[in-house]
Simulated scan of single mutants.
Amino acid sequence: MNFPLFRYSIKRSCLLWLVCTALMCLYAFSVVQMYDPASGKALMHFVQSQPHAMELLGMTQFDNTFTAFIVNYLYGMLLLALPMLFTILLSVQLIAQYVSNGTMSYLLASPNSRKCIVHTQRNVLIVSLLAMFAVICLATIVLCEYYYPDQLAVKHFLLLTACVFALQLAFAGLCFFVSCRCNSIGKALIVNAVLCLLFYMLRLAANVGGTLSYLRYLTPYTLLDPTGILQTNLQACFQPLVLLVLAAILFALATRSFSRKTMPF
């Protein structure tokens, strides 16, 4: 790994990281503030009366507990979509932008190999995502313990956060692979956005059920089962390991593609 390049890439992505992380922490604060134990039964009756609508939004925890409330609103939609947006933008910035503006030619003219460069940029993406989830998770736990002490199942929440991180790593591998394949920023952004949005839409369609339920086998989101994780179901807890394997394969393919590609300069 090239440490000067690693530090430079971290500094370049710092503003994007801060904005996305701050937005997610603000959302976590809003979710904790929204919780009202007195209205918990009313909310329970609402989600039970509209189960398909709630499942469409990814809110599958219907029991009247503080942990279920936090999981529903945090990992139902926004905390799956925002990190994915960050991943798309950062992966393009780390590889495709360097190729598009000619900066990559200077990096390749240095004593560093292509593998060294692509591994360095891959590590920037992984470390950035890891730091983001660590901050969000810690902030959420602190907020929950401050406003509602001992009501959050911390161990289960940590396990679920780790599983969501595994899901985001799989998408990071996909976006990084596309960025390594493309020579222009626009093409890399469009392809990544279309693929990520497609998988997300497949998830929403599969949540509707019925004749569309088979679509769940076409999206990585199926390997994330918050209900099973909170119930300590072994299958649900081990399914994210498949996502880690998928991420490793995609990052390996990205390295191979970048090492063999013909540069536009």
Score class of each variant (00 low, 15 high):
A236R: 00
I185A: 06
K187T: 11
C182Y: 06
A193G: 15
P220E: 13
N183D: 14
Q239V: 05
H156K: 08
L167E: 03
L169K: 00
R216T: 14
F199D: 07
S179H: 09
N183T: 15
V164R: 07
A170F: 08
C196L: 12
Y221M: 08
D225I: 00
R203G: 01
V191H: 03
F171Y: 04
L197A: 14
V178T: 12
S179R: 08
T227N: 05
S179I: 12
F177C: 08
A170Q: 06
D225N: 15
T219W: 13
A188F: 01
A162W: 12
S184L: 04
V194C: 02
L204D: 05
V194H: 00
T222L: 11
A166G: 11
C182V: 09
Q231S: 04
Y221E: 04
L189M: 12
F165V: 11
C180I: 10
N192E: 11
T232Y: 12
K187D: 03
L174W: 04
C180W: 00
L218R: 06
L189R: 06
L197W: 12
L218M: 14
R203I: 00
I229D: 03
A236G: 04
L189S: 06
L223R: 05
C180E: 02
K187I: 00
A172N: 08
A172P: 07
Q235M: 13
L241C: 10
F177N: 02
C175S: 03
T227H: 07
S213K: 15
L202P: 07
G209R: 05
G173F: 02
P220Q: 10
Q235S: 13
R181G: 14
A188D: 00
V154A: 09
L212K: 06
Y214V: 13
F171L: 07
I190S: 07
K155N: 10
L224F: 00
D225G: 05
Q168Y: 04
A162D: 04
V164D: 09
V164N: 11
G209Q: 10
F177V: 03
C196Y: 08
N183H: 11
G228T: 02
L174Y: 04
T161L: 08
N207M: 01
V242L: 15
T211W: 09
I229M: 11
P220M: 08
G210Y: 01
Q239R: 05
L189Q: 05
T227I: 06
C237M: 15
T219H: 13
R203D: 00
G210P: 04
T232P: 03
V208Q: 02
I190M: 12
C163M: 07
L169H: 02
V191T: 01
P220G: 03
S213R: 14
L244H: 03
Q168H: 14
V242C: 10
Y200N: 05
S213N: 13
V191M: 10
T211M: 12
